[in-house]
């Protein structure tokens, strides 16, 4: 190996080392804050889908300002995370289970569509929430799936009503985005079946 090729390989190696070191330093510094923001968002979404008005206590979700980082939790609820970042059990202040919340990401064609689903103990969907800004889309262009009118259709729906249809019985698909709306409906229905077992058993189940 002539001297010049040694130097070529060495210089590449040194630059990689320095940049890797720097990057890991930056990552560890900013990771704390990013996680903080991430938790903040999950709490907000959890609250959004589980404001179970039919629950015994009257606590309603008060507004949560994302920008101010003080964690104003909904008055009564506590969330126990079962599966990291996908499933939470919702308990009221007397630690009675009143429902579950799970997050799914069915495959739309503009990329995965992140949906939060709040399910009451009576397997009736309380609310769903589609995170608009999570969608990896060209900046500035919204997609129709995010419109609140589409999300409202899911409130107070039983599992068997979850199918695309023209009449008000089922869910009306959005014109122009049939593929994405079908992905949302199927995604929710399949995952409800998967997470249903957490509703029934009172004791805290082991993570699957």
């Amino acid at each position: 190996m002539t001297k010049s090729t040694v130097w070529i390989v060495l210089s590449l190696f040194i630059i990689c080392l320095i940049s890797a070191g720097l990057l890991s330093k930056v990552y560890t510094l900013t990771r704390a804050r990013i996680e903080l923001i991430q938790n903040e968002k999950t709490q907000l979404n959890l609250a959004k889908v589980s404001d179970d008005t039919t629950s015994t206590q009257t606590g309603t979700v008060d507004t949560i300002m994302l920008s101010c980082l003080c964690r104003v939790l909904p008055t009564s609820k506590s969330y126990i995370e079962i599966i990291k970042d996908t499933l939470w059990i919702v308990n009221d202040e007397r630690n009675q289970k009143i429902g579950i919340v799970f997050k799914i990401a069915p495959q739309g064609y503009g990329g995965p569509i992140p949906i939060w689903v709040g399910l009451g103990t009576d397997t009736i969907i309380q609310k769903i929430f589609i995170e608009a800004d999570e969608l990896k889309e060209t900046p500035g262009l919204g997609t129709q799936v995010v419109e609140s009118s589409f999300q409202e259709q899911f409130t107070k729906r039983a599992v068997n009503e979850l199918k695309l249809s023209q009449d008000t019985k089922g869910i009306q698909a959005i014109t122009g985005a049939t593929i994405s709306s079908r992905a949302v409906v199927n995604g929710i229905r399949d995952n409800i079946k998967r997470y249903k077992k957490y509703l029934i058993s009172d004791t805290l189940p082991k993570a699957p």
């Binding site: 720097l22 930056v26 900013t30 990013i34």
Partner: peptide, 9 residues
């Protein structure tokens, strides 16, 4: 990457 993570934070 530094800018990316600073912006994320």
């Amino acid at each position: 990457t530094t800018v990316d993570y600073i912006m994320q934070a």
